[in-house]
């Protein structure tokens, strides 16, 4: 594994630990599956995920 890929993996892990999945993966999914639908901007995507993690039911973490 290249150093760059390792860094990407670590950054992705860190972000998902606090509930933010990969924005690139989201864009790729939207482009492939729903090219006709509007795509959230990076900021809107981040805010949406933040609200989903902390604002709704089952804001999950353990004791």
């Amino acid at each position: 594994m290249s150093l760059k890929a390792l860094w990407r993996g670590l950054a992705d892990t860190g972000r998902l630990m606090v509930g933010v999945p990969s924005y690139q993966a989201y864009c790729a999914h939207m482009a492939e599956a729903h090219p006709d639908r509007p795509v959230l901007s990076a900021t809107a995507f981040f805010r949406d995920r933040q609200q989903a993690r902390y604002g709704g039911r089952g804001g999950g973490r353990c004791c």
């Binding site: 992705d12 860190g14 998902l16 989201y26 864009c27 999914h29 353990c62 004791c63």
Partner: peptide, 27 residues
């Protein structure tokens, strides 16, 4: 039903970090 938001097929190492961070607290 992938949606890029809640349902995302994730690399197992990345997901391990997510899951571990969620279960390990003060307990």
């Amino acid at each position: 039903h992938p949606d890029g938001l809640d349902f995302v097929a994730t690399d197992r190492r990345v997901l391990f970090g997510h899951h571990f961070a969620a279960i390990a607290g003060a307990g």
